[in-house]
Write a protein that binds this DNA or RNA. Structure first.
Lengths: 102, 102
DNA sequence: ACAGCATATCAGCATATGCTTATATATACA
DNA sequence: TGTATATATAAGCATATGCTGATATGCTGT
């Protein structure tokens, strides 16, 4: 269930980041400071219910919000109320950890 | 956190019922078929974060949505997308289990 | 083919969660 | 005061959840 998935603070922050950015697994790892395995498992849950979609670019897999999801409207309303996470992206850039291949 | 609380199907259904009705603990017990204790614990969680408020009427305590909650707007948006639970109230009435003390 | 990096999956563990039963508290009424 | 009803709290249990470390898979470049 979508609300249960968004009830986890890490997943909610991931979704907020994906609202404005495409991100790959290793970026989330750098941002959240948890294992690559944990990030991958969160993304799988989000993908399994169709909230995000993946887009492979070479060795990276970029995730983005799935705007075609049934729940997309609700998700956007919820994300509106979540504080911006853009500083985390800025921090990544500053550390030179942003993966942009595009 | 609000989303986590609403991520539980019982609590979400309780909130949907409270959208249109004031309900007491024993009504929820009849509706959901779980113990009085379990219902009471769900209500406590909802009350602790301010989503619902209580209103004692004699030996009953009636719960209702707390419209003054910071999260009330979000909650209403979410509840719009939850299927109506009004048949459950109708069922209660039919069984003569509705507690109305006006 | 091989090494290196990114990602996914598996197995196991600690904690959180939702439930139950038993008990305590609060109100109503005889 | 005593009994019945409604609700709250405490203790314990089974399952779910989120994490880690180890391993598998997939792509890249040599």
């Amino acid at each position: 269930m979508v609300l249960k998935l968004l009830g986890d603070k890490t997943r909610l922050a991931m979704m907020k980041l994906l609202e404005k950015n495409e991100c790959c697994v290793c970026e989330f790892v750098a941002i959240f400071g948890i294992s690559q395995s944990a990030i991958s498992q969160h993304l799988r849950k989000l993908r399994d219910v169709g909230l995000v979609k993946e887009n492979r670019k070479g060795q990276w897999i970029f995730y983005s919000l799935n705007k075609g999801s049934d729940m997309h409207g609700l998700v956007m309303k919820i994300l509106e109320l979540v504080p911006s996470q853009e500083e985390r992206i800025a921090e990544l850039e500053k550390q030179g950890l942003r993966v942009s291949c595009g």
